[in-house]
């Protein structure tokens, strides 16, 4: 999770040319590919052995080695890997026996659905909370918010998920349990987008819609809690910077109402850095969803990744890592670009 210090670094980076930006982004992707390649082909002591097993004869072993292309120089293997990834070929999963790319396309919307609702909670609650804490600096509201934000850095997501299930599902019965739908609602609506809420709405089946929402509510709000903590803390910090400026004092002296001073004069300038923060938390949510999905048996990319891990399904692990990493990089770069487009100072 990014800290305030790295945010300052990010915010301080001046406008770079579009060409330089494309090159940097491309290099970052290449770096990501280098890392997954390194993890997949270099770190394991013997990738051939993990395919043929230790009872294979020498001839079988050699044949597998050549078939996997491991007899060629490492650099050739790497470019081969980059080439196949660019064509959308991530290899075959040994547990589902399907191409990893197809699997990922199928599971990704579920993760997106949860993370999007999570960031919605985070922004809707976190931004006002941060502004409130900034205007009541040092008072109890601020202290409570500070402890709350630090809790966001200290509570394990999977633990909060389990406690949430025990309290709100088993204890109070307010929400539905693990999974995306109750078993008797499965398969009632055609999977057009694989985003359950949208699919149900498209089919006009509101029973399925409410059931899906009831399943989604708890994991999404737990996920949202973590982005809430981060967003509130950053909003407070940005807002404090603004409220200490002279134009705020001027506005107050002129008799501008306090709500206007805060929400117009103070809040307007921080919208742009906030977009970067929200982008970063959205990316962080995709990461956090790995744990939450495992706890809630949510059939998204995180669950796919952990299932693959336990089955030592390396193609699936690396494919999921690659996709999450790419989305991460992409969101980072997009928020960088947005920052530059929206900040009037960079238009000089």
């Amino acid at each position: 999770m990014a800290t305030e210090a790295s945010m300052a670094v990010r915010a301080g980076r001046g406008a770079r040319g579009i060409g330089g930006f494309v090159v940097v982004t491309a290099l970052t992707f290449l770096g990501l590919l280098a890392i997954t390649f390194f993890i997949g082909r270099v770190v394991p002591i013997d990738p051939v052995l993990s395919v043929v097993g230790d009872r294979a004869t020498q001839a079988q072993y050699d044949a597998a080695r050549i078939a996997m292309g491991l007899d060629r120089p490492l650099l050739v293997q790497f470019f081969d890997y980059v080439w196949s990834v660019m064509q959308g070929d991530l290899g075959r999963s040994i547990s589902t026996n399907r191409p990893v790319a197809d699997d990922l396309l199928r599971v990704f919307p579920a993760t997106l659905e949860m993370a999007t609702l999570g960031i919605f909670f985070g922004v809707v609650l976190g931004v006002p909370a941060g502004v409130w804490a900034a205007t009541r600096r040092g008072e109890w509201v601020d202290q409570v918010m500070r402890v709350f934000a630090l809790l966001g850095y200290s509570v394990p997501a999977f633990w909060l998920g389990l406690v949430g299930l025990a309290v709100f599902y088993a204890g109070l019965g307010w929400v539905a349990g693990p999974g995306r739908l109750d078993i008797f609602y499965e398969g009632l609506v055609p999977a057009r987008t694989n985003v359950m809420l949208i699919d149900a709405a498209l089919a006009g089946d509101w029973d399925v819609f409410w059931n899906a929402l009831s399943h989604l509510l708890l994991p999404a709000s737990i996920l949202g809690f973590f982005s809430l903590a981060f967003i509130a803390r950053m909003t407070r910090s940005f807002m404090l910077d603004q409220l200490g400026q002279e134009f705020i004092t001027t506005a107050r002296v002129k008799g501008v109402p306090e709500w206007r001073v805060i929400w117009v004069h103070g809040f307007k300038p921080i919208r742009v850095p906030l977009i970067t923060v929200i982008g970063l938390s959205y990316a962080a949510l995709l990461e956090g969803s790995v744990m939450i999905e495992t706890v809630f048996s949510w059939p998204g990319i995180g669950n796919y990744l952990t299932t693959a891990l336990l089955n030592a399904d390396m193609n699936a692990v690396l494919g999921a890592t690659l996709v999450i990493g790419s989305v991460f990089i992409l969101i980072n770069k997009i928020s960088d670009v947005l920052y530059r487009v929206l900040d009037p100072r960079s238009k000089a």
Binding site: T28, I35, P44, V290, L309, V317, T321
Partner: peptide, 19 residues
């Protein structure tokens, strides 16, 4: 920068998977 631009938990998971 490449390492920094990747999600830590995912990277750690992938490394443990290989190791």
């Amino acid at each position: 920068d490449v390492f920094l631009s990747l999600p830590k938990l995912i990277l750690a998971l992938a490394f443990v998977a290989a190791l």
